[in-house]
Design a protein around this nucleic acid. Structure first.
Length: 423
RNA sequence: GGAGACGUGUCCGAGUGGUUGAAGGAGCACGCCUGGAAAGUGUGUAUACGGGAAACCGUAUCGCGAGUUCGAAUCUCGCCGUCUCCGCCA
């Protein structure tokens, strides 16, 4: 959530930035400021009245101690009246505060200054490309055929057990998943990220912290009996590790990595381009998260991008890195790079990672702060990225490396998979 | 799931309903002391919001939320969490 202070400082600038994201209700900014003025007035009124009540109550205590019962009784009468008039003020204050938060929650994060202009994915900007697209041999097929050929993912049985979009990995397929997870985690911890294995369900407060709630509950699986949500990414539990904490400046940056399955309802998005592993309800992912000093968050972003890029290079996959345009960025992001790998048989790019700087948007919700050099408490900046999401990586590995003798695996995976080829 | 105990600041730990934002330690920071260190010693050491140029003042916060009361860390209820015992269980 944006900080009120930001809005008050320069409302016009805020509106200009919201326009970059094609946010439809710029009027909210002024509405919020008016409401905040009102809140201040009401709070001042409440504080003044409450202060009187408190001091008279104290006097009552002192009078009682001295045994001056009648004096005390008189004061009680006075306080009763004050309290009665305080009641509506107190309600008004609570109501105004709630309205204010509700409105603030409707505002998306502001895009950073160098976010490319544009409304649709077509206007995203290619930052750079790497690797080379393979020339596939005659008779090459998409991964959903290869999956059957090698009998490594069984969608039908997954659908029988759970429903469509819940793949059942089998044999070498299951092992390759495990190998990839292990490799990714090793790669991340090697770069200084601390490994976590978080809970796969979270409570409301946690889902709220990273921005899944309110409004996006439709995208998560929900367990009403226990009021818990299945995580759509480990970003959610991992970033919340530091919720409501003030960390030492020396502890920054905090780097965390975690593997988790990710559960996504993908309501409304099924229908096309969902064959095979392209879009599923449950998938495996290894995530990286950083909490950093606000001055360093864009350095951290570049560092994370370079980190993920090297990982893709080590997998020898053709990739490109996109800077998302304002209109295509997520609600909570200030700047996002998407990573896509080229799926040679499908001849299309598939998103395998998204690395974002949320600046103080998430930390303001979660109240993750640190003490700066002057002893002042400040919000940290939070960032995260996939490193990496597995299904589409698997799809590309299969398609791009298919040979008559089997799937040739990149060198880095040999020791994790135990073989050089999947056949 | 059942029964009981508990939940106070960075940590430990007091706290008969009335100057308790909270004793006392420890830790930490900055001084003094010292050749240097330890010990000793002095001061400081929560967060948020509001008012104020500032000093500072006000309000709220003792797991969370309601309630009783002139007044709640302290009493009542609900929820969450921790521990112990029993049950169940990988």
């Amino acid at each position: 959530m944006l900080q009120l202070q930001q809005l008050r400082q320069d409302p016009e600038l805020v509106k200009k930035k919201l326009a970059v994201k094609y946010f439809g209700e710029p009027g909210l900014v002024d509405e919020i400021i008016v409401l905040d003025d009102q809140r201040k007035k009401v709070q001042l009124e409440f504080d003044t009245n409450k202060s009187q009540v408190n001091s008279i109550s104290k006097e009552i205590g002192q009078l009682m101690a001295k045994g001056q019962k009648e004096e005390a009784e008189q004061r009680k009468q006075a306080v009763a009246g004050l309290n009665a008039s305080l009641q509506p003020i107190s309600e008004k204050l609570a109501e105004t505060e709630k309205q204010l938060t509700d409105l603030l929650l409707k505002l998306p994060n502001l895009p950073s200054d160098n976010v490319p202009a544009g409304k649709t994915p077509a206007e995203n900007v290619v930052a750079r490309e790497g690797g080379s697209k393979p020339a596939l041999p005659e008779g090459s097929v998409p991964h959903w055929d290869l999956i059957r050929k090698y009998d490594i993912v069984d969608f039908e049985t997954g659908a029988k057990i759970t429903g469509s979009g819940f793949p059942l990995y089998k044999g070498k397929g299951a092992k390759l998943q495990r190998a990839l997870i292990q490799y990714f985690l090793d790669y991340n911890t090697g770069a200084g990220y601390t490994e976590y294995l978080p809970p796969f369900m979270v409570n409301e407060a946690t889902a709220y912290g990273t921005g899944q709630l309110p409004d996006k509950e439709g995208q998560m699986y929900y367990m009403p009996a226990d009021n818990l949500y299945m995580i759509p990414t480990s970003e959610v539990p991992v970033t919340n590790i530091y919720r409501d904490e003030i960390v030492k400046a020396d502890d920054l940056p905090i780097r965390m990595t975690a593997y988790s399955p990710c559960f996504r309802r993908e309501a409304g998005s099924f229908g096309k381009d969902v064959r095979g592993l392209n879009r599923v309800h449950q998938f495996e992912k290894v995530e990286i998260v950083q909490l950093v000093h606000p001055d360093k968050s864009y350095d951290a972003l570049e560092e994370m991008v370079a980190h993920v890029e090297k990982l893709l290079q080590s997998l020898e996959l053709p990739y490109r890195i996109l800077k998302l345009c304002g209109g295509d960025m997520s609600f909570t992001s200030a700047f996002t790079y998407d990573f896509e790998v080229f799926s040679a048989a499908q001849e299309r790019w598939l998103e395998v990672s998204s690395v974002s700087n949320f600046e103080a948007y998430q930390s303001n919700r979660m109240k993750i702060r640190f003490k700066d050099a002057n002893g002042k408490t400040q919000l940290v900046h939070s960032l995260n990225g996939s490193s990496l999401a597995l299904p589409r990586i698997l799809a590309c590995l299969l398609e791009n490396n298919q040979t008559a003798e089997g799937i040739k695996l990149p060198g880095v995976l040999h020791k994790y998979f135990g073989e050089e080829k999947l056949a």
